[in-house]
């Protein structure tokens, strides 16, 4: 499995390789998110969401995991969606909350990791009979949400060796295998 050195992105912030707009966006992204003023998930739902997010995007090597549940809650509460939703599903916040309630009722929190995965696989396949919502679409929306939040975080971008944020000078050579000095190389 390919791995990259730590700090390849965070070291760029504040340097000459990032435009001010990009550096500001990354600083903002790294900062912890405040809870929304008006919550759309209660404490119990948030706890289930955190447990689900840990199965969807495991972060075993990170001392402090990126708090995906808090970030998704904030996004849902802000009500700024991605421009569309499945017509047969309720609004995003309601969809997410209902699925979390159903998982709680199925004893999600009390299961071990393998048991949680088994339950989630059934949810993903649309096998869970949830009144008024499709478990498959719930799963797709929650997965797309946490994946978007995770891979837009500079620390996750370090994990995959992404250097595209280094925009101030652009790229001289874009061809096959070309590498600029500030593009990370995999470590053994």
């Amino acid at each position: 499995m390919t791995a990259y050195p730590a700090h390849s992105v965070t070291d760029l912030i504040g340097g000459a390789l990032l435009t001010p707009a990009t550096a500001a966006a990354l600083r903002d992204r790294i900062a912890p998110v405040d809870p929304p003023a008006k919550t759309v998930l209660d404490e119990r739902q948030l706890a289930v969401l955190a447990a689900v997010a840990a199965r969807l995007v495991p972060q075993p090597d990170r001392p402090t995991p990126i708090d995906l549940a808090a970030r998704l809650h904030r996004r849902l509460a802000d009500g700024k969606g991605d421009g569309w939703r499945y017509a047969d599903q309720p609004a995003d916040a309601e969809l997410v909350a209902r699925g979390l309630d159903a998982l709680a009722a199925a004893g999600f929190a009390g299961r071990d990791g393998a048991g949680q995965d088994e339950l989630l696989r059934n949810v993903q396949a649309g096998g869970a009979d949830w009144p008024g919502i499709s478990s498959a679409r719930w799963f797709e929306e929650v997965l797309a949400g946490v994946v978007d939040l995770y891979y837009s975080h500079p620390l996750a971008q370090e994990e995959i060796g992404y250097a595209g944020m280094a925009d101030a000078r652009g790229w001289q050579d874009v061809g096959f295998g070309a590498r600029a000095a500030h593009e990370p190389e995999p470590v053994a």
């Binding site: 435009t19 707009a21 500001a24 992204r29 421009g83 569309w84 837009s152 595209g164």
Partner: peptide, 17 residues
């Protein structure tokens, strides 16, 4: 910004069904 999430401001995000 060279940041995908920050640039979502260029997308029409009023909800469509």
């Amino acid at each position: 910004a060279t940041d995908e999430v920050a640039q979502s401001k260029l997308f029409w995000t009023d909800e469509r069904l």
